[in-house]
Amino acid sequence: MEERVLTAKGAATRQRIVDGAALLIREQGVVNVGLDDIRAATATSKSQLFHYFPEGKADLMLAVARREAEQVIAEQMPQLGDLTTWRKWQAWRRRVLKMYDEQRDGCALSALVGQLGLGDATTRQIVGDLLDRWLEYLVDGVEALRASGEIDRSVDPVRAATAILTAVNGGATMLVATDRITYLETALTEAIDDLRRPR
């Protein structure tokens, strides 16, 4: 579907609906949230909702998926975008742990994968694009450490970044399942510390 150009007011209204829907889905789960719930929570009329989302819930859920994917990256900034020193890597690690500890099963990643699901090809593409962007930031960070001599030049940036990204996502999944952050803390710390281990 072609993207329509919205006025500033229209864009703000559409974003308010998406934000409200995302919050409801995080709190109640996608199967428990209907269009009437979203309309009530966002003070939106039926005509307004279908004006911005002509295909109804399907359109809105894709917009929520894109919003949650953006949130995953945004919530890690500015640290994720500046992994140029070991100290900054540690600051990013602390931010990730604090973020997930506070959000628990209300995190954007959990909402995106767990609540919205991966049954739709477009949603899978959104998740895939998110992980590719996230990995790119981490690869850049590993390459910066290699260039500055803070880690051995034999470290493979893509393999190392992939291990770190997997540690975050695996640890976050186990956090949601058990409500214990120790899995994420241990996996992420080990994956980052591995960057400096002798080769």
Rank of each mutant, 00 (worst) to 15 (best):
V64W: 01
T44C: 07
Y137E: 13
A91S: 12
A147G: 07
Y52L: 03
G81H: 08
M99G: 10
T44E: 03
E150P: 04
S110I: 11
E136S: 15
A69L: 04
P78I: 02
D156P: 08
G56S: 08
V139E: 10
V96Y: 05
Q71F: 11
Y100W: 09
R104E: 11
R94N: 13
A58T: 13
L165A: 15
R87K: 14
V96T: 14
L80P: 06
K98G: 12
M61Y: 13
A121E: 13
T122D: 09
R93K: 13
D105C: 06
D120Q: 05
Q76V: 09
G81Q: 07
E55S: 13
S110P: 04
A63T: 05
A108K: 01
G149E: 03
K88C: 02
A111S: 15
R133T: 14
D132I: 14
R159L: 14
G114P: 03
E102H: 08
R94Y: 07
M61L: 15
Y137Q: 13
Q115T: 06
L112S: 07
D82Q: 11
I151R: 01
D140A: 14
D129S: 13
A144T: 03
A74N: 12
L118P: 07
T85L: 06
R93L: 10
L135R: 13
R66P: 00
M77S: 12
F53C: 00
R94A: 15
M99I: 11
A58S: 11
P157Q: 00
G117Y: 06
G114T: 09
T123W: 02
D82K: 11
D129C: 08
G141N: 08
G81R: 04
D132V: 15
D105Q: 07
L131I: 15
E102I: 05
L145T: 04
